[in-house]
């Protein structure tokens, strides 16, 4: 059982948390401007790496706040917990974001810009 350090409540058993899937999947500002394929990319496709994974959690039985986490899916080691809307601060976490998540986010940022 993971011990997750809620940024507000401190370390708690993972049973108190709700897993929210991959982080940094910004919702496009104007979804209607996307093709079915682009929309599917946003809605259904995830990275699912063996290794560092950027993911969202909610302390649902506690303060109900959402936050981001960098977790190694092979070892369950938690490298870092960081606020929603921000990027990882650790070197490894930031590298993972650059390698696997930035493309995703950039596409969405473009979409957001297109939507004005």
């Amino acid at each position: 059982m993971l011990l997750i350090d809620c940024p507000w409540c401190g370390p708690r058993d993972d049973a108190e948390f709700h897993y929210g899937g991959e982080a940094h999947t910004l919702r496009p500002a104007d979804p209607s401007a996307l093709s079915d394929e682009e929309f599917a990319e946003y809605l259904f496709l995830q990275q699912n790496p063996r290794g560092l994974h950027l993911e969202r959690w909610c302390h649902s039985d506690g303060c109900r706040r959402w936050f981001n986490m960098v977790r190694d899916t092979a070892t369950n080691r938690i490298l870092e917990i960081y606020p929603m809307g921000e990027l990882p601060r650790s070197r490894a976490g930031l590298a993972a974001w650059r390698d696997n998540w930035r493309r995703n986010s950039a596409a969405e940022l473009n979409a957001r810009n297109r939507g004005g």
Partner: peptide, 13 residues
């Protein structure tokens, strides 16, 4: 409730 809270905190803060 959780779903609405998620949208508020993660997409529309």
């Amino acid at each position: 409730l959780d779903w609405l809270e998620e949208w508020l905190q993660t997409e529309w803060p």
